[in-house]
C-alpha cells in the first residue's frame, strides 16, 4: 500500500525512468535523412544534439549511379526532413516526391538557394551522348563554392527552425558559428591558392565536378568526362585533351576518390604530366575529408602541392 519503496524497487524505478527519458530524447530529436554527404555534415553542424542525421548516400558511394533501395525509402518516410543536392544531381528525386508528400517529409534542396552554373563539357562534340545530361545542363556540384555552402547552411537553419521552433536559438547559434568558420575557410583557400601562379591554374580531372571551384578561384577546367561520372569519354575527346595538356604544359592531372583512374593514368603516360593526387569531387570522403571543411582543405592542399 502506501509504505516506503524498497531499495531494489527504487533501483528498478530509476532504471525505467532513464529508459523513459532516453525514449523521450530520441522522440524529441528532429529526424533528418540526407541524400548528400555535404548536406549531412552541414545538418550535423547546424542541428547539434537536437537533430538525428541519417546518411542515405554515404561517403565513397558514387552518387551519380546510386538508386534508393526499398529500405532507404522506408528510412526516408520515417524522417521529418529530407536533404538533397538538387540541380539534377539525384536523378531519382522526382520519383521520391509522392512518397515524401504522403508521409509529410519536408524536402530541402540545396540547389534551390545557389546561383546555378552552366556545365561546359570539355571536347563538347567529342563524347558519347548515350548518357542523360545535355549540353547546357546545370552543374549540380554547388558545394565546391564556399558562398553556396553558406547559403545552404542558412537554408538548413531555417528548415530546422520551422520543423522544431523550440530549437531556434540552438540552430541560429550553430549556423552563425558555422558561417564564421566557412568565412575563415574561404580566406584560407584564397591564401593557399595565392601561392599558385595564374598560368598554373588549370585543373584536369575525370569528370566535370569542380566548375564552381574553378569560377571562384580563377581556374580553367578540362575533363575526360562530362558533368556526370556516367558520361562516356570518347577516344577523340581523350586525344584532344592530351594535345591540350601538352600545349599548355599542364603539370598535373587529378583523379577522384570514387573513380577508376585508368584513363587518367593513360593520359599521364602520354603527356608526361604527373598524377597530382585524388580529389573529393562528388561529396565527402573518409579520414580528414569526412567533413566539409576537411574535404575542402584536402582538395586545396592536393591542388596546390601538385601545381605549384
Amino acid at each position: 500500500m502506501g509504505g516506503p519503496i524498497s531499495r531494489p524497487m527504487n533501483r528498478v524505478l530509476i532504471f525505467f525512468s532513464f529508459l523513459t527519458l532516453g525514449s523521450f530524447v530520441q522522440a524529441g530529436n528532429l529526424r533528418v535523412a540526407s541524400l548528400s554527404t555535404v548536406m549531412a555534415d552541414l545538418a550535423r553542424e547546424v542541428g547539434g544534439d537536437r537533430v538525428e542525421v541519417i546518411e542515405i548516400v554515404k561517403a565513397g558511394v558514387d552518387p551519380h549511379i546510386y538508386e534508393p533501395t526499398p529500405g532507404d525509402r522506408k528510412t526516408i518516410a520515417k524522417s521529418q526532413i529530407l536533404l538533397a543536392n538538387g540541380l539534377g544531381f539525384e536523378g531519382y528525386l522526382n520519383n521520391l516526391r509522392p512518397g515524401l508528400e504522403k508521409n509529410g517529409v519536408r524536402l530541402v534542396v540545396g540547389g534551390d538557394v545557389v546561383k546555378p552554373l552552366q556545365a561546359v563539357c570539355s571536347g563538347e562534340e567529342a563524347h558519347d551522348h548515350s548518357h542523360s545530361h545535355s549540353h547546357g545542363a546545370t552543374d549540380p556540384h554547388w558545394w565546391h563554392s564556399i558562398p553556396n555552402v553558406q547559403a545552404v547552411a542558412t537554408q538548413i537553419r531555417d528548415a530546422f527552425a520551422k520543423a522544431d521552433p523550440e530549437g531556434i536559438a540552438t540552430y541560429e547559434a550553430n549556423a552563425k558559428d558555422l558561417n564564421a568558420r566557412l568565412a575563415a575557410l574561404s580566406k584560407w583557400v584564397r591564401l593557399q591558392l595565392a601561392t599558385l601562379p595564374k598560368a598554373n591554374r588549370i585543373l584536369v580531372t575525370s569528370h566535370e565536378a569542380l566548375g564552381y571551384f574553378a569560377v571562384d578561384n580563377g581556374f580553367e577546367i578540362f575533363t575526360v568526362q562530362g558533368v556526370s561520372t556516367t558520361d562516356q569519354p570518347s577516344s577523340q575527346n581523350v586525344k584532344r585533351l592530351i594535345e591540350e595538356i601538352k600545349s599548355r604544359k599542364v603539370k598535373a592531372i587529378f583523379a577522384e576518390n570514387i573513380e577508376n583512374p585508368k584513363v587518367l593514368e593513360q593520359i599521364t603516360n602520354e603527356t608526361g604530366a604527373k598524377l597530382g593526387g585524388v580529389l573529393y569531387a562528388d561529396g565527402l570522403g573518409s579520414g580528414p575529408a569526412a567533413t566539409y571543411e576537411g574535404m575542402m582543405k584536402t582538395n586545396v592542399s592536393v591542388i596546390v602541392e601538385a601545381l605549384k
Partner: peptide, 11 residues
C-alpha cells in the same frame, strides 16, 4: 614585375 595581362594575386 608581373605580366600586365594577367597579374598575380597578392598575399
Amino acid at each position: 614585375t608581373m605580366n600586365a595581362a594577367e597579374p598575380e594575386d597578392l598575399a
